[in-house]
Design a binder for these strands. Structure first.
Lengths: 213, 213
DNA sequence: CCGACAGATTATCAGCCGATTACTAGCCTC
DNA sequence: GAGGCTAGTAATCGGCTGATAATCTGTCGG
């Protein structure tokens, strides 16, 4: 569970690499739990440092979260931004999103930001990220807005399924399984589709459209 | 902000109606803030009662939230369930969802449950609700699963926009405005689309498909 | 009038959480 | 090898939060 392990035994590390380590640990714990539901001590333990040191390095819990959230959303935006406009842009954006699925925590953290819209600072970052993704999809594909919207909607649905734990809890609800299978079919690495046991992950017929038509 | 007002001045009320009052207040405060980000005292103040009484009536904060969440998700499911199967089912489900949009707090609360998938009790309820909605859409319309998925994805996107506050913060991000306008165009009462000031809520061209094709 | 029960509050607690302070210890330079 | 800077921790604190206990009060049957 700890992010430390393979790092330097335990001794002095440069402040910069500690920051990275703590941010990595924070991504994991904030991805479960969200902002309000996570303590700085959880972050510290996951990173293998003391709780006051987390505060020392980032100033406050909120600043830590905001820096993390900014990094994550920027990463997502950059991954999609490199796609060049053209007739294949839709497919390439789909591929880019699939690449993002390799690290579920990033997308789960994004979702936490979306529903934290009531918090001014977090909400502003989240809205910006959502808008940026839509703009990229719309501009790169040159498709009508409803098509870009459908692309984003599909991505958001997958994010929600990730956040809700639909994949981890496969086999508990037939309809949810069908929705999850239909949504992520062929888009998530197999290690993610069947994480615990080999559930009823049989692909559903008529459910394999890619990105936008 | 208080839910009391038009209720009995302040004096003794039947326990049952107090429960309803508290649940109504809890819906409002949990819709902002989510589960972890909301205190029982906030609920109590919004309901106009003392904090210990909230605990007394519901046992614990978690039980209060779970009862509220169950009610809300059941309401959503019931609203969609009454649609009868047939060729118009898609349009009627769209209308049913629009009716749900009249009370944003319910949908915002639902979203909080989705991202709280790490909490076992809340996550189970949320996953069940999501699965149930998909099943209803799929069975009532008789459409292929990808079409039902698209319907759910569209609804989820609108829920995310609501949760992120995209409508309240219209005018701050062009792309987000376009996405919101394109997604909720004609689906949200005008009082909701332009809540504060008359932002750039001009309808976007080519963006008015209803439900599923 | 009077018990008695249900509605509701005040007072209070134990635990947690974010943050501050003061301190220790490694590493680099001269 | 001393000075000093930076990495890091232990100790601690004030405030908040969920929950409990004790108490008060309105209302209703008899």
């Amino acid at each position: 569970m700890s992010v430390v392990e393979s790092a330097q035994g335990s001794r002095r590390m440069t402040g910069e690499s500690r920051r990275e380590q703590i941010l990595a640990a924070a991504l994991a714990v904030f991805a479960d739990g969200g902002y309000a539901g996570t303590t700085t001590d959880q972050v510290a333990r996951a990173a293998g440092v003391s709780q006051p040191y987390v505060i020392r390095l980032f100033g406050s819990k909120q600043q830590l979260f905001l820096e993390l959230y900014q990094r994550v959303s920027e990463h997502v935006i950059e991954v999609m931004e490199v796609v060049s406009a053209g007739p294949d842009a839709g497919a390439e954006l789909g591929t880019a999103y699939v690449a993002l699925l390799a690290d579920r925590n990033r997308l789960r953290l994004l979702m936490h930001g979306f529903v934290a819209g009531s918090d001014p600072a977090i909400g502003a970052l989240a809205r910006h990220a959502l808008g940026a993704v839509f703009r990229i999809v719309r501009d790169r594909t040159g498709a009508p807005e409803w098509a870009a919207r459908d692309f984003v909607a599909h991505g958001v649905l997958i994010n929600v399924l990730l956040a809700a734990g639909a994949l981890e809890h496969a086999g508990e609800d037939d309809a949810l399984d069908a929705l999850a299978s239909c949504s992520v079919h062929g888009r998530v690495p197999s290690t993610l589709t069947a994480p615990t046991a080999g559930g009823p992950s049989a692909p559903v017929a008529g459910c394999d459209r890619l990105s936008n038509r």
